[in-house]
Design a protein around this nucleic acid. Structure first.
Length: 548
RNA sequence: GGGCCAUUAGCUCAAGUGGUAGAGCAGUGGAUUCUUAAUCCAUUGGCUCCAGGUUCGAGUCCUGGAUGGCCCA
């Protein structure tokens, strides 16, 4: 005992976290002395109780409906007993505010209305405990709803104090690390994750209605393919086999088209061993769909319909969350070739909110289709670029690679300035089409110009949401593309794909003419729910572990 | 990878130029018991992120590190 401790009277313990915990442990012990378990498991809900609880909470939020409720003194003898159970988040006078998945409602808990046992239990309640009350629903003097408790049960002890009731939990790191607290302390956060589920369900509903078959393909892959990215590596002991976590499901899904499923999709996790940012988490959710007897142009139409349908459902269910929008999904979605987007960027530089850059001086409109002029322009730019952009440009060996690099560096950052509604108030979704063949190893080349492929990427509010193309189903062409990837690997490209011999064999059995579409589900949710960081739409984003 | 910012009680935040670390909420004891961030009285609670340094004296200044956020590449 330190001298400080001796000054304390009983009941005046220090309020460090350990001692706040000890105070609650002491209350748990007193529950045990009363013959009540601190963590009981013998109280059960059922559909009927659940419906009643939901109706109580909904009534509590409905000002006009609750005005018809009786006050305590007007209660009839046979007033129905309604349940309210959940977590205590505030104590106000003789009221407990109880949080449920449907919202908050309050209980009026007066000891004289309870049995001696229940009144004694009530004395031991702490904020954040799980409790259940039952009694008639009344209107309070201030017009609020309350369940006037005739029965009180302790359902579970919280040993740690909840965050401040008014401010909630604000510490961003703590919110991500202790999402369980974030969710019950900040209802707006929980709302985002409910919205997330609605988006995913809505995607499924849309595709199911079009007779797409939802499938599950392996997460453990032997070869890297379907995207260009660094994988996570792992090992299977029994087979003594090096495996990677999939970077995309693409090649398995297309095998299923060979197998005769003409419309398939998968919503699942993909893993990329890359940086973490507000737009990147090492594991993320991807939707990929494949459709036989369709082209990438059909999938543009499908993408518009699908995203509009999802958004309509989301907006109907979450009007507040979706109120602020920098983009307009109801406008006509632009379709621009990659080369035209560069040309447009150059022509409009310095006008209409489209900024000038050093590229604007070095690169002429005519150079876009002239390999030598483009290479010269790139060389002239090199010194002006940052290290990463410089590296990307230096690695370019072909006209197509240069076009793609220029698109990424020059056009992509200013897409929101380039494509806007007529009055300029909002951005418009844009499909960028005709990608160079070199950067599209799985896409079908264009029949009229084999240097480009039948592919698009969809950008909404400047953010890349989707990538899609008509599928390459010529096995010899695909084999040559894989060879090209291997050469890139030798050039030092760690993201290049492997040669997938089984996939070539699958194509050799005949992949029907088809098109495929991939969508970053987390990014779509960020966009539609107006969330600035991918961590705000992932329940448990990857963080460096805490020490200790 | 680079730059900027942040880290103080369980939570939310204060502490001009270096001078005894404070408040609200939560907690504890009591009063009250139809409250709406309940109120009233009393009261507990600190390795000021970590490790060094400068100084008579560091939450504050310097160096290094940790974690997080934002921006740039």
């Amino acid at each position: 005992m330190t001298p400080k401790d001796t000054k304390r009277t009983e009941g005046q313990l220090m309020a460090t976290e350990d001692e706040l915990r000890q105070i609650r442990l002491n209350k748990a012990a007193r529950l045990r002395e009363m013959g009540v378990l601190p963590y009981p498991n013998d109280w059960r809900t059922n559909p009927e109780l659940e419906d009643k609880r939901r109706s109580v909470v909904e009534l509590a939020a409905d000002e006009s409906a609750r005005s018809a409720l009786p006050v305590e003194d007007e209660l009839s003898e046979d007033a129905p007993q309604m349940p309210l159970f959940g977590r205590v988040i505030a104590k106000r006078g003789p009221f407990l505010v109880i949080r449920t998945p449907h919202g908050d409602a309050q209980a009026l808990v007066r000891p004289e209305k309870l049995s001696e046992r229940d009144a004694a239990l009530l004395k031991l309640v702490d904020l954040a405990d799980h409790v259940m009350v039952e009694g008639p629903v009344i209107r309070t003097k201030t017009g609020a709803l309350a369940v006037s408790a005739r029965r009180y049960e302790h359902l579970g002890k919280a040993l740690l104090p909840p965050p401040a009731k008014w401010h909630g939990l604000k510490d961003v790191e703590k919110r991500y690390r202790e999402r369980y607290v974030d969710l019950f302390a900040n209802p707006a956060v929980a709302e985002v994750f409910r919205a997330r589920t609605v988006v995913v369900q809505s995607l499924r509903r849309f595709l199911d209605a079009l007779d797409f078959l939802e499938v599950e393909t392996p997460l453990l892959h032997v070869t890297r393919g379907g995207a260009t990215a660094k994988p996570f590596e792992t090992h299977h002991n029994t087979l003594d086999l090096e495996l990677i976590l999939r970077i995309a499901p693409e090649l398995y899904l297309k095998r299923l088209l060979v197998g005769g499923f003409d419309r398939v999709y998968e919503i699942g996790r993909a893993f990329r061993n890359e940086g973490i940012s507000t737009k990147h988490n090492p594991e993320f959710t991807i939707l990929e769909l494949y459709m036989a007897y369709a082209t990438h142009e059909d999938l543009m139409d499908l993408a518009v319909d699908m995203i509009r349908a999802v958004d309509a459902e989301l907006r109907a269910r979450f009007p507040e969350l979706t109120a602020e929008r920098a983009f307009d999904l109801s406008a006509d979605w632009k379709r621009v070739t990659l080369r035209d987007s560069i040309a447009e960027r150059l022509v409009r530089a310095g006008r209409e909110g489209v900024p000038k850059t050093t590229w604007t001086d070095k690169l002429s409109h005519e150079a876009i289709d002239d390999p030598e002029a483009l290479a010269n322009a790139c060389n002239a730019m090199l010194a002006k670029l940052g290290p990463v952009a410089q590296k990307q440009l230096e690695h370019c060996e072909t006209h197509g690679e240069r076009l793609f690099a220029i698109f990424e560096q020059l056009v992509e950052p200013d897409l929101t300035a380039l494509y806007r509604t007529g009055d300029g108030s909002q951005t418009v979704p844009v499909f960028i089409t005709e990608y160079p063949i070199e950067v599209s190893p799985l896409a079908r080349s264009n029949d009229d110009d084999p240097a480009f492929v039948d592919r698009f990427e969809l950008f909404i509010d400047g953010r890349e949401i989707s990538n899609a193309f008509s599928e390459l189903n010529d096995p010899d062409d695909q084999a040559a593309r894989f060879e090209g990837q291997l050469r890139n690997r030798e050039r030092g490209d760690e993201e290049a794909m492997d040669f997938d011999a089984d996939y070539i064999r699958a194509l050799s059995h005949g992949l029907p003419p088809a098109a495929g579409f991939g969508l970053g589900v987390d990014r779509l949710i960020m966009l539609l729910c107006n969330q600035p960081s991918i961590r705000d739409v992932l329940l448990f984003p990857l963080l460096r572990p805490e020490n200790e």
